[in-house]
Design a protein around this nucleic acid. Sequence first.
DNA 1: AATAGTACTGAATATTTATACAGTATATTA
DNA 2: TAATATACTGTATAAATATTCAGTACTATT
Lengths: 205, 205
Amino acid sequence: MKEITIQQNKVLDCIQDYINKTGFPPTRANICKELGFKSPNSAETHLRALEKKGFINIESGTSRGISLVNPKVNKNNEDAFPIIGLVAAGSPTLASENIEKTVNCSPTFFRESFDYFLRVKGLSMKDAGIMEDDLIAVKKTQDIRNGDIVIARIEDEVTVKYFERKSPEVVHLKPANEDFNDIEINLKETEIFIEGKSVGLIREN
Amino acid sequence: MKEITIQQNKVLDCIQDYINKTGFPPTRANICKELGFKSPNSAETHLRALEKKGFINIESGTSRGISLVNPKVNKNNEDAFPIIGLVAAGSPTLASENIEKTVNCSPTFFRESFDYFLRVKGLSMKDAGIMEDDLIAVKKTQDIRNGDIVIARIEDEVTVKYFERKSPEVVHLKPANEDFNDIEINLKETEIFIEGKSVGLIREN
DNA sequence: AATAGTACTGAATATTTATACAGTATATTA
DNA sequence: TAATATACTGTATAAATATTCAGTACTATT
């Protein structure tokens, strides 16, 4: 198999992304729009080159008749997600010094997309089935609803709790363990930063 | 989600097969040829019914713009693991009728290899952080040690418990929930089959 | 008895799409 | 120096395709 050029690789990635996103391959026009080409023939020639080099098959006379030859090229299907362990005070969560290791896993593994895994310390969410050393799939978002399990940062300490907004100024962070107490936060007095919410969990026995 | 009819299910299977075979969804005409319809409108009406019932999405004005809501991945994919739901009495665990759906995941995702996921029913292992609807990664093995979480079948009922061998003839299956009682099994009286053991867990929030 | 859903045939049509043709330009190879 | 591959724009068009309309027939529900 001949070498692929940078542009051809962009087209190949574009096809992969399009399939992952929509479930079906793109048209020439779709590729043009995605990569900024102004003529469908730009896509066409790249496709012919990719076919010649064995990266794709093109079903002649068929709309969207592009198929990827090497299904392992589906690496967009398997991304590496970092596991965040102890988060140093003040440092950005995803800073490399906080990354324990990475896990290969599909971005669509859980019902919602997510950004990283957080390794759980302590048993404050025990009754929600979240145990020490479990990996919580964290989605970085500010779109939090009451009852969501949130990853919150209060004065440089990271904690995982149920979220409940009592009033515009008062937020409760509730553990799922009777040995722990609710944390009541008055936003006028105490600063709180919501890192995101839990969208899933993995336990390595 | 409403019930699917026999014909609609044939169309759904046809779409799945077509995608697995070609890499892209079929046209109305393709479906007609495959299923012996003589008018593209036969396919069209089935597709609209399937969309209405939530099995597929149709991108309007787009050729081959069909995408499956719950796509089953090619069985040749080494990284597709079945989720086993309710296991019918007497039927082999991995029989296709027991497969709820499949999950894409690396075989080496957990520390030990595994064979399938079991969807948990009930809260008998609550204090071990195993909640209802969690997915347990099950390794089919007879190599069980005391303290392992096993998937056991006792008289056609499947249960997840801690395993403890008291003597060559007596086995205890211990729940992790004080509302449940230990199950003591005398192997001379009661037959027990160990399906395997838990090597990990996934929770889809 | 009327309504709605399923399950088709058959034909018509507007839109989508692949694909060919005509160019321009640059870099690499023989 | 000529040939070849890459990397595009721009236009045109035949073929592929979605989608609508007009029917027929059966079944289940109200």
